[in-house]
Design a protein around this nucleic acid. Structure first.
Length: 745
DNA sequence: TCGGTTCAGAGTATT
DNA sequence: TCTGAACCGA
């Protein structure tokens, strides 16, 4: 057993204080790069090492599997105890574990399957079709959002109040969806949480059991919790347990998916938290970068308040570059990255961040043309690939017959002559008997199906049945291999022109199964290896593109960069409308969340941070003109180094010089230091007329109501022409030039 | 059952 | 402009 003094060595004062807090509720405000994970894991190790709690008395919850793994990895290096006794995992993983253990009390069959978002949407579409509801009337996606939002606020269909007919319709469909899921023995992600919550709420014995057991509950990324997760924690904590919540309100960037920073304040209040510790010393970024981050986030009103500092020195100022176009920005990036590599750093030390995925294409194109290897985060993950989902569908049917989603996915894949009409008839029969498709098949010949069709369906049934018998005694990997072969998937893809990669992915699935067996199976308490593997496959979508090992430039959205750090960081597309995103500006707390997003982006950088923006950008097939982001204005000039001449921006009526977009365009020195002609190539003389006044992009104008503004974009001709004008604090507005009375100031 | 055409929509995302 | 999904004809 590690000595507690060893564990605590090297912690700063605040970290030390947090780790050694008494067994009471605590809120740790952990700034970016302040050693949050270290504090969390050391706290656990310290609790164990100082014999305050045994591993089975601990529950630690995270949002991602990656974070949970990281925590376990670090812990195993710190303490020599059986970590499997602890409950460490994601909210969904832990809820799954609880539901597996008490499936009967939760009203679920032992073999219930988990739907990922794809599956859920497919299930909803299928339901709408069966109910003969036109997708034009009810958009499946909207319904899905509605259902998930209900569940995340703890509401069952029966308890949702409908305000109008439209709403009432949705509630009815929510109800029908609940019935369908129950019949098919499937639960979606939100359901895992809600069921687990209801289980604890309803069942006092169980609640007492878990409350007595988990003396210490630790929560990572507390600012990302949603309403239901918060209530779940509250229920689990009961009166006697200590909740150690770690989070950073300034890094709350998931409001759009239900995360509520307010939970941090609620926690402080409702749990009567006396121990609030701020971790403000930053071990990641150089001083100039931190000062920028601090200055930026100070502009937000809704915060608990903290400021990062470092003793590592000021480092290099933050570089800022204006470009003429998105293509120019990409070209500039290429040159900068080449220079970085020339100076001896690795490409993988460089991250290119952007606000939205669409922005990656131009950059990819430039990197590709320059033969610079890159890796884009996002996109399809391993367990989401079609061929992998097909194989999983067979496995699910082996485990659980009633899964109509899985049935329909593979009943005719590979093709075995079972067409849409046969399936419709089978579905009708299943509906009449309110049973699953497989059950309908077993039951009846009174389906109206032709003998031939029925026989083909029966063959499929036999296939599943046979696979079940053939695999039950096999080791998991062998079972998966057998299913891939016997189902015909292997042959199907081997005959397909471009099936090679898919075959490889199927082989990878076998490998995943093999390594899964050798992994610890904390949730396999009384679960077959196959059932456990299927849970794993649904709860962990796997790596994005595992091109690990390659020395490639890292490209990702700011959201997916959260939690990561890089030596060199480029934040691109810093333009009004893009970052902050125009959609966010019309949301209640949108701008502050965008600013937090920028704060996250800035604090990813260790040594060097680059900010870039372009005057024009191709967006939705149109060239758009943007002015630079207000977030650049909000950074203290003393910490910036402008690589291109800094044009004056006018933000609102009160601020200084008139804005001239691309003030250096006419001068040959524009873009000095980079030397690419892309900087000079753009001809920008879009013009339109209003009341005899000629307008161009960048023109200053005055409006009687909105005050002074600057022309950002021009559209149309003659009497149809419109101008988008940025009126600073009044916002961006489109004005029809034939109507608006604009003057030159 | 596949392959082409048409059409809408185009912020961020984990489980 | 580009993508994905839905739809239709062979």
């Amino acid at each position: 057993m590690t000595l507690t003094s060893d564990l605590l060595r090297g912690l700063n004062e605040q970290q030390h204080a947090a780790v050694t807090l008494p067994a009471q509720h605590a809120l740790i405000l952990a700034g970016a790069g302040s050693g949050k994970t270290r504090v969390l894991t050391t706290r656990i190790a310290w609790l164990i090492a100082s014999a305050q709690v045994s591993p089975q008395g601990l529950l630690a919850v995270t949002f991602t599997n990656k974070a949970a793994r990281e925590m376990l990895n670090r812990l195993s290096a710190m303490v020599a105890v059986n970590l499997k006794l602890m409950w460490v995992g994601t909210f969904h993983g832990l809820c799954n574990r609880m539901l597996r253990a008490h499936h009967r009390d939760a009203g679920l069959p032992a073999s219930f399957q988990i739907l990922d978002s794809q599956d859920q949407l497919a299930a909803i579409k299928r339901m709408l079709k069966a109910m003969q509801i036109d997708e034009d009337k009810v958009a499946p996606r909207n319904l899905m959002h509605f259902i998930n939002a209900c569940k995340e606020s703890g509401q069952r269909a029966a308890s949702v109040e409908a305000f109008d007919d439209y709403n009432r319709r949705f509630v009815e469909l929510y109800s029908a969806y609940e019935v369908q899921c129950q019949r098919e023995a499937v639960v979606d992600f939100a359901e895992l949480l809600l069921r687990s919550y209801e289980l604890l709420q309803r069942n006092q014995l169980l609640r007492d059991h878990y409350q007595l057991r988990f003396r210490h509950i630790l929560v990572d990324e507390f600012q990302d919790t949603n309403a239901l997760q918060y209530r779940w924690l509250k229920l689990l904590a009961g009166a006697g347990n200590a909740v150690f919540a770690v989070g950073d309100d300034d890094q709350s960037i998931y409001g759009f998916r239900g995360a509520d920073v307010g939970n941090m304040m609620a926690f402080e209040r409702e749990f009567r938290v006396d121990n609030l510790i701020k971790l403000e010393q930053n071990y990641r970024s150089a001083g100039h970068i931190l000062d920028c981050a601090n200055a930026l986030i100070e502009q937000n009103n809704a915060r608990l308040g903290k400021a990062l500092w470092t003793d590592a020195g000021a480092g290099e100022p933050v570089r800022v570059q204006e470009l003429v176009s998105d293509a120019g920005e990409a070209q500039w990036l290429v040159e900068q990255i080449k220079a970085i590599v020339r100076d001896g750093d690795r490409r993988s030390d460089v991250a290119v961040l952007y606000r939205s995925n669409a922005q990656s294409r131009v950059i990819e194109h430039a990197l590709f043309s320059a033969t610079i290897p890159y890796r884009v985060y996002g996109g399809l993950r391993f367990f989401e690939r079609a061929e992998v989902k097909h194989a999983l569908a067979y496995l699910r049917l082996i485990e659980q017959d009633d899964d109509d989603g899985a049935f329909l996915r593979v009943v005719n894949f590979p093709v075995r002559g079972i067409g849409a009409r046969s399936l419709e008839q089978l579905q009708d029969l299943a509906k009449r008997r309110s049973c699953s498709l497989m059950a309908a098949l077993a039951a009846g010949a009174e389906s109206g199906l032709s003998t031939a069709a029925l026989s083909r369906l029966r063959q499929f049934q036999q296939l599943i049945h046979g696979l079940r018998q053939a695999t039950v005694m096999l080791p998991l990997a062998d079972a998966v291999q057998k299913v891939i072969e016997q189902s015909g998937l292997a042959q199907h893809y081997s005959l397909e022109k471009e099936g090679q990669e898919r075959l490889e992915n199927l082989q990878e699935l076998v490998n995943a199964a093999a390594s899964f067996v050798s992994e610890d199976l904390p949730l396999a308490e009384n679960l077959s290896p196959l059932a456990a593997f299927l849970s794993h496959a649904s709860l962990e979508a796997g790596e994005h593109q595992a091109l690990a090992g390659d020395d490639a430039v890292q490209m990702m959205t700011v959201h997916s960069a959260k939690g990561l750090e890089f030596q060199h960081v480029f934040i691109t597309g810093l333009e009004e409308g893009l970052f902050p995103h125009e959609n966010a500006l019309s949301e209640a707390r949108g701008l502050e969340e965008e600013r937090r997003l920028m704060y996250v982006a800035i604090t990813r950088a260790r040594e060097r941070l680059y900010l870039s923006f372009a005057q024009t950008r191709m967006l939705h097939g149109q060239t758009r003109y943007h002015i630079r982001s207000r977030f650049i204005e909000e950074l203290p000039q003393a910490h910036l180094k402008w690589l291109s001449p800094r044009a004056q921006a006018r933000w609102g009526p009160s601020s200084g010089e008139p804005y001239t977009l691309g003030g250096g365009l006419d001068s040959p020195g524009f873009g000095a230091g980079t030397g690419g002609d892309h900087l000079l190539s753009f001809e920008r003389h879009a013009q339109a007329a209003t009341a005899g006044v000629s307008l161009r992009i960048g023109q200053n104008v005055r409006h009687e109501r909105f005050g002074d503004g600057v022309v950002v974009s021009l559209e149309g001709r003659g009497t149809d022409s419109r101008a988008q004008i940025n009126f600073g604090r009044q916002g961006l507005k489109w004005l029809a030039l034939s109507v608006a009375k604009l003057q030159l100031p």
